[in-house]
Design a protein around this nucleic acid. Structure first.
Lengths: 226, 226
DNA sequence: ACCTTTTGTTCACGATTTGGAAACATGCAA
DNA sequence: TTGCATGTTTCCAAATCGTGAACAAAAGGT
């Protein structure tokens, strides 16, 4: 298998240098871009497997760039991960779901970055995409066909909303789903429910499957940790 | 034992490619055909152990192809499994029994496909006991040919609707069938019946075959536990 | 044809589960 | 502290299901 191609996009040359070296040494085929416009051009030409996109950039920010990427039929299947500085304003990411596959906080340790990247690529690798039972990592299995969840060795059945919420969150472990995205995914776009409804269902899932698996990202949403 | 021969029939080349790779890697001897006519020819020549047959095909559809296969004395013993797209019209399959040994919903994940195929081949392995009666696990046998069910050691005959409902549910034990799928599969897509009709038939099956075998998944549907 | 029996469907209503809103509590950060 | 955003509890409404009975339709026998 040829090395995975990664497009690294950041406006700070230092960061680009460091990360590209790290990724190259890990065996990836890295190219870089310094802003959103360059990134789009490079992406169209190279069809990378994964794009690492800094959120804060001049010209065109990461969120906007990501939206554009998603509109390109040739690129909409490639992975996008946002790089965000710790403490940076999440709101633009949260506001509408730009469709990123992961969020990586800067500063990031080389080892961590590499393992996150590998995990992302592995997850989307069609060859080892799981059967539809066992969509998840250790301990928790979600069997969509049988509509049951297997956790801590025992099988349990969840009410529909809970099941669908779990399924959504667990479909991309680690990814943060905005409240908006959750509403849209589980309740549908035209249903209107109160603010606390999601919380309540999250709580029920926490009761049944363990508190620590569902992390809340304040001001953004929730994620499921595999 | 030589590898089992599988004939894969679908009109979409993409699907054929993917599935044949999956099956080859699982150790099967795979050949392919793009329509019913080719399929018949290939089957007569190769005598596959199992034929995977897409239902929706131009020229000659899967059901028709299957009927023809069944008429060929050399082929009537080989297994046939229908591939049907989720939500596709079941009525032609359910309406008259085309003689398929299994139904597999597309899209199907590689692991699932392989395990279903293995199960099918195992089930029909003459060394391993039963032939085409005994479609089911312990305790309950469904004999499609004789239209009879054997439960708790005694044979009973069920009314048509009950039988077909049971057969549908039992075709994939553990899998939840939505009410919609049940209607489509047993009643056909153009018949309109009331909400409670399915419940009533389920109740009758429960009366006759034991309460706990049919589980209801609220808001979703029913499943049969082997 | 006629009557009888079996099968399939509908309806009404009770039982149960599920989902959602309000109200209140808690925690975190400026 | 103060001001959000989230967590929790409780209670009620709505959705869903099970059941018995009545009825309609079909099948079968004479």
């Amino acid at each position: 298998m040829p090395p995975s191609k990664i497009l690294l996009v950041d406006d700070e040359p230092d960061i680009v240098d460091v990360l590209s070296i790290v990724l190259s040494e890990a065996g990836f085929d890295v190219t870089t871009a310094g802003n959103g416009v360059e990134a789009l051009a490079a992406a169209r030409q190279q069809r990378p497997d994964l794009i690492l996109l800094d959120v804060m950039m001049p010209e065109m920010d990461g969120v906007e760039t990501c939206s554009q990427l998603r509109q390109d039929p040739l690129l909409k299947d490639c992975l996008v991960a946002f790089l965000t500085a710790r403490g940076e304003d999440y709101s633009q990411i949260a506001g509408f779901d730009a469709g990123a596959d992961d969020y990586i906080l800067k500063p990031v340790k080389p080892k961590v970055l590499v393992s996150r990247v590998k995990a992302l690529l592995r997850r989307s690798d069609p060859l080892n995409s799981e059967g539809n039972e066992a969509e998840k990592g250790p301990e928790i299995f979600i069997d969509v066909e049988r509509y049951v969840v297997i956790a801590h060795g025992e099988e349990m059945s969840l009410p529909r909303k809970e099941f669908e919420l779990l399924r959504l969150l667990a479909s991309q472990p680690g990814k943060v789903f905005t409240r908006e995205a959750i509403l849209s995914g589980v309740w549908g776009d035209d249903v209107v429910v109160g603010d606390r409804t999601i919380d309540v269902h999250i709580r029920k899932l926490r009761e049944k499957l363990g508190n620590d698996r569902f992390k809340t990202v304040k001001g953004v949403g929730y994620k499921f940790e595999g």
